[in-house]
């Protein structure tokens, strides 16, 4: 799997080290660069190919960096670092905010949510569009089980499975089994390796 790359733009040595240790704890991430001041920032934005940049708000407030930041936001996801929990940063496109006073677990959770690598314990969240039960059914559809097999596995009637399927399709706007499978993988309901091949059209 390709690693998600990070850069940190922060003047304070202590905060930088703190962030480095936090990012280190997230699997499949890689810290590529640490930027300590404006000069380094300008040099960095000229040739950056980095997924996420965690950036102290003092950089964002600096008028001289405005163009560079705008350019950066087109190529990388910006995560703002601030000490004030009422800050909003509407003037810049950003993916999220990290507050200096947050605990390690909250910062970890935040970064994982932003980058989508929500798999630290192998657990996955249920996507907001569907219910827990529907997620169970969807998972089995994606794994290639037929309505009858799903009914037997979950101790419900085939009729109930069909109703759930209809609801899932209506809620997600996805009709075909391969489409639902991709949705399940993107949302980490199942692992890509579980599916074998992505063409379970036989189960209709």
């Amino acid at each position: 799997m390709t690693k998600v790359t990070f850069a940190i733009c922060e003047k304070s040595f202590l905060i930088r080290k703190g962030l480095v240790s936090v990012i280190d704890k997230i699997p499949d991430t890689q810290l590529v660069q640490q930027i300590e001041n404006e000069e380094e920032f300008l040099a960095f934005t000229n040739n950056s190919e980095i997924d996420y940049v965690i950036i102290n708000k003092t950089f964002l407030k600096n008028i001289a960096l405005k163009e560079a930041i705008k350019q950066l936001s087109e190529n990388s996801g910006i995560i703002v670092l601030t000490d004030n929990s009422s800050d909003k940063f509407t003037e810049i496109i950003h993916r999220g905010i990290i507050y200096l006073n947050d605990s390690q677990s909250i910062i970890l959770k935040n970064i994982k949510e932003i980058t989508g690598s929500n798999t630290v314990n192998g657990k996955s969240g249920i996507p907001e569009e569907i219910s827990k039960r529907e997620a169970d059914i969807l998972k089995n559809i994606a794994l290639g089980y037929s309505n009858k097999e799903i009914a037997e596995k979950l101790f419900i009637s085939t009729h109930t499975v069909v109703t759930h399927r209809k609801n899932i399709t209506r809620k997600l706007g996805i009709k075909t089994v391969p489409g639902l499978t991709i949705y399940a993988i993107i949302n980490k309901l199942i692992d890509i390796n579980e599916t074998g091949k992505l063409n379970p059209d036989t189960h209709k």
Partner: peptide, 8 residues
């Protein structure tokens, strides 16, 4: 399927 791909 095309419709699904778009929605995804």
């Amino acid at each position: 399927k095309l419709f699904d791909l778009k929605n995804i």
